Simulated scan of single mutants.
Amino acid sequence: MDISWSNIDNLDDYFITYLLYNESKTVSQISKIRNIPIADVNDHLIKAKLEIKSANKQKVESSKDVLDKFLELGKDSRLEFIEELSLDEEKELNFKRELYKRILREQNADDLIVLIWATGEFRDERFLKILHPLTNHRHSDIRRITYSAIRKISSPKSKLVLEKGLYDPNPQTRQYCAKALAKVGDDKTVEILQRLIDRKKINEKEYVIRAYNEAILALKYLTAGGEAL
């Protein structure tokens, strides 16, 4: 939108009032210059400012990339967005590429948590290359959501990383790891879980111990030739 004297022939009448105001003319002076009531001057200015504000907002929105818009959505809307992407393979692949690159450079912890969460919803093993290193992040919530995403992807490639997560300071993270290991663990995992139960039974959270026991039962069932519970 070109609001200037050079573009006056293409502007609505109220923008002429705005241009005078923009040159530091008072409402009273504009009223005399344009030979219109003061009330009309005020109406012109309000209308011009609202239109400029709307145009600027649209400009900002159009300049945002798809991930910026994704980050502004609520959780339910994000899930709908991801579901819609699954209907278009090319769009989904492009979004995943942008998601991957954004996670590598994102500095805002809250936004990073949402981006990591999204990788889990895609259940795509290719994200593990960036998720595994993030389990060492200093921010406990970022580690927690990373382990949650890894759990959703549920790949045997994550076994060692998930076993390491059993020693994370965050109890919910330990729970996530135990639940994930119920599907991708092995006999060694059972030994680790049993050792943790024996050593931490008194001081560990009840829901974490329960997750350990459930993982042990599931893995023993798998070893016996059953399918994952």
Rank of each mutant, 00 (worst) to 15 (best):
F70H: 03
I36E: 01
D65E: 14
I82H: 08
E51C: 04
I36H: 00
L87R: 05
K49V: 11
K47Y: 11
F95H: 10
L85F: 12
L45R: 02
S86H: 12
K75S: 13
E92R: 08
I36C: 00
D65W: 09
N35L: 08
E80I: 03
V41I: 09
E84S: 10
D68A: 11
S77R: 07
R34W: 04
S63R: 13
S62T: 13
V41D: 01
D40V: 00
L93R: 02
L87Y: 13
K47F: 09
L67M: 04
S63P: 14
I30N: 00
K32W: 09
F70I: 03
D68T: 05
L99Q: 05
D68E: 12
K49C: 12
E83F: 13
I30P: 00
K91Y: 14
V60I: 15
I46H: 02
K32Q: 06
E72Q: 05
E98G: 04
L93V: 04
L67P: 01
K49R: 07
L67K: 04
A55M: 11
S62G: 13
K47C: 06
I82K: 04
D68W: 08
E92H: 03
I82P: 01
L45N: 00
E98C: 11
I30S: 00
R97M: 14
E89C: 09
P37L: 12
N56P: 08
A55C: 14
K75H: 08
K75A: 11
I38F: 11
L99M: 10
K47Q: 10
S86E: 13
D40W: 02
S31D: 04
I46A: 09
L71H: 02
D76M: 07
K69G: 07
I82E: 13
N42I: 01
V41T: 01
D43H: 00
E98N: 09
F70Q: 02
R97W: 14
V41F: 07
E61P: 06
D65G: 02
G74F: 09
A55F: 14
L87D: 08
N94E: 15
E90N: 01
L79C: 07
L99Y: 05
K53P: 07
K57E: 15
S77G: 04
N42L: 01
L45M: 07
E83M: 15
L71D: 02
E92N: 11
I30H: 00
E83V: 12
D40R: 00
S86C: 12
L93S: 10
I52H: 11
D68V: 08
R78S: 04
D40F: 02
I36Y: 02
L71Y: 05
D76R: 03
E61C: 13
G74K: 03
I38T: 06
K96G: 07
L45E: 05
S63F: 15
D76E: 13
N56Q: 14
R97V: 09
V60W: 14
L67H: 04
E61G: 12
K32A: 03
I52S: 12
H44W: 07
I33M: 05
E89N: 06
N94G: 06
K49F: 14
V60F: 15
R78Y: 10
S31W: 00
E61S: 10
L71S: 02
I33P: 01
L67T: 01
K59T: 15
D88Y: 04
